[in-house]
């Protein structure tokens, strides 16, 4: 939370400081929009905190303070981030940006006149992948697909799984492995200047903001990982890289958008991967009882090994 407070303007900072520690722990998003009231989302419900009986309206001054602090007074240093529309700050938190978009030849060049900031608080849930250990590990890590609709906790689960793999799990005498992460959207590790902001263990190498297909090949060629972690695969090129990696004897853990295994069969590039049976485990997530509900763990033929349990 300290890292987040550092980029907020004084007025907003004082409001956040009024919340108790418990409430502060529940903050998911802080939404800042010029000329509109400050919105704080705590445990899924929006709140518009009041100062002196009025909602706190964000001034232009407040917004320029955030921009200055995010960029260390050097907007040009944020060029890449302004193109992608978010800035990752220390602690792995992420500030989404919206405003006037400048395009060049139909591609987004930058966001100018930033009018909305969405500070998303990153929460690492250490230990959520532990109950899955016995399904995903037997003598070695199995190639795994984590499947779920958006906001179902895929990346959070993937992050904790990465940590388990890189740190090992002495209680079950699982040794640590060299893990390579291709983190195209900087979400798994939340890197700042290439250094992961989440606790991922000491044996992790990250290609931050790298296109997935290319990144996987780079990892295989140069970093000799034992396990590769990739988020949200989909394209044909990525499937090729995955086949390459599996044939090189590397274990893979990937996530895919979709709500059931049938969805995967409908996507041509992924369908092949699943049918070939190279992924021995498929973890299905859903939002039915909040993010992170494990609907089922299936094997490569689609047979269920385990049923619904909330983590």
């Amino acid at each position: 939370m300290e890292e987040v407070l550092r980029v907020l303007p004084e007025g907003v900072k004082n409001i956040i400081k009024r919340y108790s520690n418990v409430e502060r722990g529940g903050i998911e998003e802080i939404r800042i929009r010029i000329n509109r009231p400050l919105e704080i989302i705590i445990n899924g419900s929006p709140q518009f905190p009041q100062v002196d009986g009025r909602e706190y309206f964000i001034s232009r001054e407040d917004a320029s303070q955030i921009t200055n602090k995010l960029s260390q007074y050097s907007l040009y240093a944020l060029e890449e981030e302004l193109k992608k529309g978010f800035v990752t700050i220390q602690g792995g938190h992420r500030v989404g940006l919206a405003g006037k978009v400048i395009t060049l030849n139909g591609n987004v060049k930058a966001i100018r006149d930033i009018a909305s900031f969405n500070v998303r608080i990153a929460k690492q849930k250490i230990g959520i992948a532990t109950p899955l250990l016995s399904y995903l590990y037997s003598g070695g890590w199995m190639n795994t697909v984590i499947l779920g609709p958006p906001n179902s906790g895929k990346t959070t689960l993937l992050r904790d799984l990465t940590r388990l793999m890189a740190e090992g799990y002495p209680k079950r005498s699982i040794a640590s492995s060299k893990v390579g992460i291709v983190d195209e959207r900087s979400e798994i590790a939340g890197c700042v200047h290439g250094i992961p902001q989440h606790q991922l263990g000491k044996r992790v190498d990250i290609l931050d903001a790298c296109p997935k297909a290319e990144g996987m090949m780079m990892m295989i060629r140069s970093m000799s990982p034992e396990i590769l972690i990739v988020d949200e695969i989909g394209g044909a090129k990525e499937s090729e890289a995955i086949i390459e990696a599996v044939n090189a004897g590397i274990h893979l853990v990937v996530t895919v958008h979709g709500s059931s295994i049938e969805d995967l069969y409908r996507r041509p590039s992924i369908q092949e991967l699943i049918r070939s049976g190279m992924f021995k485990r498929i973890v299905e997530l859903s939002r039915s009882s909040g993010p992170g509900t494990i609907k089922a763990v299936k094997d490569h033929k689609g047979n269920e090994i385990r049923r619904t349990k909330v983590i």
Binding site: S71, Q72, Y73, S74, E79
Partner: peptide
């Protein structure tokens, strides 16, 4: 520093 290094002002 700005054009080639994209170094923040304070560091530059």
């Amino acid at each position: 520093e700005i054009v080639y290094g994209m170094t923040p002002l304070s560091v530059a």
